[in-house]
Amino acid sequence: MSSSLRRGVLAATALVLSIASLSACAAGNSAQTLEVKPDNAATSVGDIKLQNVNVITQPDLTAKGPAVITGQVFNNGRKDQTLRAITLPGKNAKVKLTAAKGSGDVVVPAGGSVLLGGKGNASAVLPDGREALKDGEQQRLAFDFSNTGQVTIGAFVVPATSYFKDWGPSEAAPTPSTGAPSGAATPSGAGSPSGAGKPSGAASPGAGAPSQAAQQHAGH
Rank of each mutant, 00 (worst) to 15 (best):
K134D: 02
N54K: 03
G189T: 11
S188Q: 11
S200I: 09
L15G: 04
A14V: 15
D144R: 12
R78H: 06
R140M: 03
H217E: 15
S4C: 03
L133G: 00
A14Q: 05
S123Y: 00
K198F: 13
R140I: 01
K64N: 09
Q58R: 12
F156P: 02
N147W: 06
K96W: 09
K134P: 00
A172V: 07
A132E: 10
S204Q: 11
A209R: 05
S170R: 08
T43Y: 02
V9G: 02
P210L: 05
T70D: 01
A27S: 09
F145E: 04
D47G: 00
A110P: 10
V106W: 03
V108H: 10
F164M: 07
A172T: 07
T148V: 11
P174K: 01
T186V: 13
N147M: 14
S23V: 10
A67W: 02
Q216M: 14
A100R: 06
A180H: 09
P174M: 02
P169T: 01
V107S: 09
D105H: 05
V157Y: 01
G118E: 01
A93H: 03
Y163G: 14
G65V: 01
H217Q: 15
S3V: 07
L116A: 04
G117H: 09
V53D: 05
A196K: 12
D80L: 03
P89C: 07
A12G: 06
G71F: 10
R140P: 01
E131I: 00
C25Y: 14
Q212G: 11
Q212I: 05
A213S: 13
N121E: 02
F74Y: 12
L83R: 06
R84Y: 04
N75F: 14
K64L: 09
T33S: 14
A209K: 06
